[in-house]
Amino acid sequence: MTEQGTAQAAPLAGKTAIVTGSSRGIGASTAKILAGEGAAVVINYRQKAPRANKIVAEIEAAGGRAVAVGGDLTNADDVEKLAQAAIDGFGSLDILVLNASGGMESGLGEDYALRLNRDAQVAMLKAAVQRMKPGSRVVFVTSHQAHFIDSVPTMDAYEPVARSKHAGELALRELLPWLEEKGITFVVVSGDMIEGTITATLLERAAPGAIESRREAAGKLYSVDEFAAEVAKMVTAEVPSGHTELVGGAEHFTG
């Protein structure tokens, strides 16, 4: 294979990525795609170590490099540990995919959605940036329901999560001048409800028929793998810092 062909096959060779919330769903699929493009990947999980280790094993079996690191993103020490794991394990930190989110889980406190979807995102970005070099990229994953919440109402069961994720996006965007000074670009990927995610499952439980209704309105809902491919594309896409990539079904929100 020519040198150019090798570069095309492994565009992320020599790079290290952290993907938060990557033991399952969109995060896991994104991590596997990035690993397939040559990146070493830090798989982050909150509780389910066996599930995270399975993703690592799949990546390694395919010839990639990965490590699983447990950590609750609402815990400052865990955030630092996660960011440092990229340096200790692979020597650099070049890509941060802020995929982890939540807020519909029970028993984690009334303010959990805001602590995870806003405060933890900012803390994770700041910890990562201290270890990133110019040319690095941060990708924040959100939903149309959150991105457009100020102009398009969402389902009652999802509104607290949507508002907290919107607050997270705004807080991250406030850091754009700081990121620009450091030569680090920031991109938002916004998608419709995604088939097969834990959020969709919890939403359907809280509001039966919600997913089918959204599917009919959008015409199609992306699968986990389809959406993850779009997230992974934004890691290397030539777009300006601050760009928002709208994936699927956005006409309902922008029209």
Rank of each mutant, 00 (worst) to 15 (best):
S136N: 06
R214M: 13
T16N: 03
K54E: 15
L96I: 10
E204H: 02
K15F: 01
S29Y: 12
A237Q: 08
A207R: 11
G248C: 12
E60Q: 12
R115D: 04
G27Y: 11
V19T: 02
I149H: 04
R46C: 07
A61E: 15
I149S: 02
A232W: 00
E80R: 13
D119G: 07
N44R: 00
A13K: 11
G70N: 01
N75Y: 10
S29H: 11
F186E: 07
A7G: 03
L12G: 02
A62P: 02
Y45M: 00
V129L: 00
R215G: 04
T16W: 05
V41L: 04
T6F: 06
D150V: 09
A120W: 00
E169H: 14
E37C: 08
D150E: 15
E245P: 05
T142F: 05
T6Y: 09
I198L: 15
A66F: 12
V139T: 06
T2V: 13
A35D: 00
V56F: 06
D225S: 13
L172I: 10
K32W: 05
L175G: 12
I87L: 10
D150P: 10
F148H: 07
R118A: 14
L172T: 10
D94S: 09
L221G: 01
S164M: 04
N44K: 01
P153C: 04
I18L: 09
H252M: 10
L179R: 03
A49T: 09
V235T: 11
S223D: 09
T244M: 14
E80K: 13
R51L: 12
L125E: 06
A35Y: 00
S213D: 14
A200L: 05
G25R: 03
E174I: 07
V247A: 05
T154V: 03
A250D: 09
E226V: 09
A86C: 04
E216N: 11
E3I: 15
D88I: 10
G63W: 01
I33N: 00
I211R: 00
R115T: 05
A128S: 15
I149C: 06
A128M: 10
A162W: 14
N117Y: 03
P153E: 04
L108P: 09
R24D: 09
